[in-house]
C-alpha cells in the first residue's frame, strides 16, 4: 500500500480558529467519501481530523486564533493501483512536544477532556506524531479502506445502473 505521489493531492492552510473546524471536516469527509469510505467511516475520519486540529489550537497554540495549520491529503493505492485508503497530514508551527507523550487519558478515568488523542488512535489505522524541522509538529494519519466499496466499483455500479435506466426508458 502506498500513496500515489509525494505531492499532496490537496493542501490547504487554515487559521487556528475553531470556527473553521467545520470546513476542515467537510473537506476531509467529502474526499474520504469519493475515495470509497462509507458514511460512518467518513464521519469518523472527519472526527479524527477535527480532534487533531482541536489539540493544535488548544494545546499547541494555547487557543490563539491567528496561527497557521496545514492539512495535506493523499489517496492511498493498493498493489494493483486501486484506491485503498487515505493519508492525511496535519502540520503546525506550534510548540514542539515529545511525540511519545502524545497520549490520551485512560478511558476508565471518566472526566471532561483528554479524549482527543484516544479518539484519533481509535478511529485511524495509523497516527504518528513527529517534530517538524525547525518548529511545529506533524501528525500523519492513515485510514485503510477495508470496508467501503472502491470508487472503481462504485463507478462501475453507477454505469450499470445508468445503462439499466436507459434500457428501461427505451422499453417504455
Amino acid at each position: 500500500m502506498k500513496t500515489m505521489s509525494d505531492r499532496p493531492h490537496i493542501r490547504v492552510e487554515l487559521l487556528s480558529n475553531p470556527i473553521y473546524l467545520c470546513g476542515a471536516r467537510e473537506l476531509v469527509g467529502s474526499v474520504a467519501k469519493r475515495l470509497g469510505f462509507d458514511d460512518l467511516d467518513c464521519s469518523k475520519i472527519a472526527l479524527a481530523v477535527d480532534e487533531a486540529l482541536c489539540n493544535v489550537i488548544r494545546h499547541g497554540y494555547n487557543r490563539r486564533t491567528d496561527c497557521p495549520i496545514w492539512i495535506s491529503i493523499w489517496p492511498i493505492e493498493n498493489g494493483s493501483g486501486k484506491p485503498a485508503g487515505i493519508k492525511i497530514v496535519i502540520e503546525d508551527e506550534a510548540k514542539q512536544v515529545e511525540p511519545l507523550k502524545m497520549r490520551g487519558r485512560e478511558l476508565s478515568d471518566i472526566r471532561p477532556g483528554g479524549l482527543g488523542v484516544h479518539i484519533i488512535r481509535e478511529v485511524m489505522d495509523e497516527a504518528q506524531y513527529e517534530r517538524r524541522e525547525g518548529k511545529g509538529m506533524r501528525l500523519t494519519l492513515i485510514k485503510k479502506a477495508d470496508v467501503g466499496e472502491s470508487p472503481v466499483r462504485l463507478a462501475s455500479r453507477t454505469a450499470q445502473s445508468s445503462a439499466a435506466h436507459k434500457r428501461q426508458a427505451t422499453e417504455r
Partner: peptide, 30 residues
C-alpha cells in the same frame, strides 16, 4: 466532537451531585 462529550460529562457530574436525573436522547448514528 470530544469538546461536546466533555461538556456532557461535566453536566452529568453536576447532575449526580445535585441528584438530578440526566438523560440523553435521539442521537444519530454518527
Amino acid at each position: 466532537d470530544s469538546s461536546g462529550l466533555a461538556t456532557l460529562v461535566e453536566s452529568m457530574r453536576t447532575a449526580k451531585g445535585n441528584k438530578t436525573s440526566m438523560v440523553l436522547c435521539a442521537m444519530n448514528d454518527k
